[in-house]
Design a protein around this nucleic acid. Sequence first.
RNA 1: CGGAGCGUAGCGCAGCCUGGUAGCGCGCCUGGUUUGGGACCAGGAUGUCGGAGGUUCGAAUCCUCUCGCUCCGACCA
Length: 571
Amino acid sequence: MRYSQYLLPTLKETPSDAEVISHQLMMRAGMIRKVAAGVYNYMPLGLRSVRKMEQIIREEMNKAGAIECLMPMANPAELWQESGRWEKYGKELLRFKDRKETDFCMGPTHEEVVTDIVRNTVNSYRQLPLNLYQIQTKFRDEIRPRFGLMRGREFIMKDAYSFDLNDEGADKSYSKMYQAYRNIFNRCGLKFRAVEADSGAIGGSFSHEFMVLAESGEDGIVSCDTCEYAANVEKAELIYRDLKMPEATAELQKIDTPDQKTIEEVAAFLKVPAEKLVKTLIVQTSDDEVLAVLLRGDRELNMIKLNNLLNVDWVLMAEDAIVREVTGAPAGFAGPIGLKIKVIADTEVMGMADFVVGGNAVDVHYTGANVERDFKVSRFADLRQAVAGDPCPRCDGGKFESWRGIEVGHVFKLGTKYSDAMNATVLDAQGKSIPLVMGCYGIGVGRTVAAAIEQNHDENGMMLPMPLAPFQVQILMLSAKDDEVREAAEKLYAELLDMGIEVLLDDRDERPGIKFKDADLVGIPLRVTVGAKALKDGNVELKKRVDGEQSLVPLAGAAKKLQQLVDAALA
RNA sequence: CGGAGCGUAGCGCAGCCUGGUAGCGCGCCUGGUUUGGGACCAGGAUGUCGGAGGUUCGAAUCCUCUCGCUCCGACCA
């Protein structure tokens, strides 16, 4: 492709509404342009990367035995009413009517449609297993779209749905997809973790999220440094091997702690580490219950774990008025001793003795507090947020490392939720009608490209890995007016095209500085500079975008050398 | 939906408080000089000041309504 004839509108300045790097760079490199909130044009350059991502997905899905199809964006309400989601999905489902006033929605996901296909076409267990996938534009009317392609309302997604006769089959389908996903993200050259996820409202027995590691990730995750275990911090299990309740050795003592409210203040005031404190959080639930939660002073409460434990819709920190009512003191002095409400504690607290707690009165704390002797705990449970260094629950000796991650894929075992609701059954070998066991598997295509940029960039621009890069090689024709330079660049360009290499020739009549800056911004992995200097000796300059490694190569052998480098980067 | 903020040239912004000729930088066009990391000189084009209504002799500026967008909270590929 010739730059002079291409549409590659780069921006010198960062658009003011782009918050994250990938969004900024995709805008600046002319990959995307916004049309409406959370709705983007894929510009020629951006589309090239998106298509590459899709192709990798397609190849790996096909290899795993999935079959591509394409379902409509416009879904009739009828199917959604059948599954019950027309009512349940809420405002995120973009609804509209056709000219006959029939209700439709833009598909945010396609369980209903695919289930409808299968129930109409699959009747026998002999036709199983079946895995149908598509790469489609989805629409979810998110309340707050942001971060460019990272969280758009309209976005391209690969979604796959597996159908099996029974659980064992479904598990097999699931693990095939799990492996296919690993292959996909590996091929993209991304650092990622497959984490155990909360299967949430959709239910089902297990679920993994595929997270690309990046500083700017929205999710906190932990992974074991020795085994395969990885999980969202919200879900990461904690384990206490050989936990015993130690003997109390200290007397319970009431002490004055004037104006010392936070854990840091109290710890500093008493000259003890925060680990020797136990904090008491007063929470209220959707069932109108108020209870106290105990955690070691330096730990964070994991609301999701608490939520699941209590089995309620939501849990919140109690309002000030409630705190005063149950503890008799303003926030900052709550403690378990003498509380009338139910007290639950993080398991870790069980292993603590002689600790500091709030005194339920202004400017008062207790030291030397102990469970059982001084107060009762109705229940111990894993309630705290996992952090780096925590021991792995699945292996011996492994420790957690912590990361930020961007969720780019999700695999779910669905069970029979949709097949039951929509009556998708087959006859088994005994002629009995049984509901299909389903799984669903999504990958955010644009999001993965954005995540790849988050993970691969520097201050000058993008550094997309070869498999996702819009072009493989860029030639900078440094002076379009110099005949020798032009001819040499043209020759190399033609050779590379012949070899089937994806090459962008910057033949614009621009100053070198502009070409260099744009090249860095777009970040095509291999850059060849054809300039008068090196050409005098018959050479061109080769520079790798990732590490900045430069070398002079003879013009004559440049094409071959480039081909080797491209091949190596794709292997 | 709750809270905060912004809509002025393609992009980034000033002007608004205190009403009176719409401005700056970048980009764009023309000519010239330049040509290895976002050049310089000279000339030029570009705006329903988001929209509607109101106040006023006069509104980008004040008032009301409206639409769009961005940011902070609960959802998610």
